[in-house]
């Protein structure tokens, strides 16, 4: 059943969607309804006018006023942040649950999951390694102590020799000084004795002279 409504047929015609039956009804309406035909003519006229429409020239208008530079989103407003955060959390959970471990040894970084992955030495190997290390350490210490004792002994000997030489030297000098003092004392004693004897002689000479003078006077 064809919709005979003028508005419907008109709309279908404008949308270029008339079926054969609708087209027949449309054409019949154009013939029978002058008002409808006038609308069709106006629509056709409008289509032509739309194609030929010549507006005044485009004015110079401020396009810059229409552009409002958007604010750059801050880094914490980055839309991927929640996703990255979620991924990091998931990764952390996986690491915890799977026993993820990171080992740093001799400048090497070893990462692994669980205990089995850590391909390190066994306990016996570790014990042997530790024993070797301790042995090496003891030997090194022993050698160092020996060397230290030798050095100490040598230093002791040198010190003893130096002390003995010093004692000898100092006792020799003391004896020399003692002798010098003794000689000086003896010399001083001799000087004193000489002075004493000289005074005694002088005194004796004076007495002899006095005696002599007395004798002379008596004799005269």
């Amino acid at each position: 059943m064809v919709n005979q409504s003028p508005e419907y047929l008109f709309g279908q015609w404008l949308d270029n969607a008339l079926t054969e039956d609708e087209r027949s009804a449309f054409e019949a309406l154009c013939v029978s309804d002058a008002d409808f035909a006038a609308r069709v003519a106006t629509a056709t006229q409008l289509n032509v006018a739309a194609e030929q429409f010549s507006p005044p020239p485009m004015p110079a208008w401020d396009k810059n006023a229409t552009f409002i530079a958007p604010d750059k989103p801050k880094w914490w407003q980055w839309q991927g942040l929640p996703a990255v955060s979620m991924a990091m959390s998931a990764a952390a959970m996986v690491m915890v649950l799977s026993g993820f471990s990171v080992q740093v040894e001799d400048g090497r970084v070893t990462m692994g999951f669980g205990q089995s992955v850590s391909s390190g030495p066994t306990e016996a190997e570790v014990a042997a390694l530790v024993a070797d290390r301790i042995n090496d350490y003891q030997q090194a210490n022993q050698a160092m102590f020996t060397q230290y004792v030798n050095a100490l002994q040598q230093q002791q000997q040198e010190s003893s020799t130096q002390l003995a030489q010093y004692l000898l030297k100092s006792s020799r000098q003391e004896r020399r000084e003692d002798f010098a003092e003794l000689v000086q004392f003896i010399n001083q004693q001799r000087d004193d004795d000489q002075r004493y004897y000289a005074r005694q002689l002088t005194h004796l000479q004076r007495e002899i002279n006095a005696i002599d003078d007395g004798y002379t006077a008596v004799t005269e």
């Binding site: 008109f10 709309g11 404008l14």
Partner: peptide, 30 residues
């Protein structure tokens, strides 16, 4: 006529039904 939109598009833009748009056009042309 100038925007070359379909009735459905016009109805969507103006917030009307397609039939209302057709009716208004029909009246406007007269």
């Amino acid at each position: 006529f100038f925007g070359q939109f379909t009735f459905e598009e016009i109805a969507d833009q103006l917030g009307l039904s397609s039939n209302t748009v057709k009716s208004r056009l029909y009246s406007a042309l007269s």
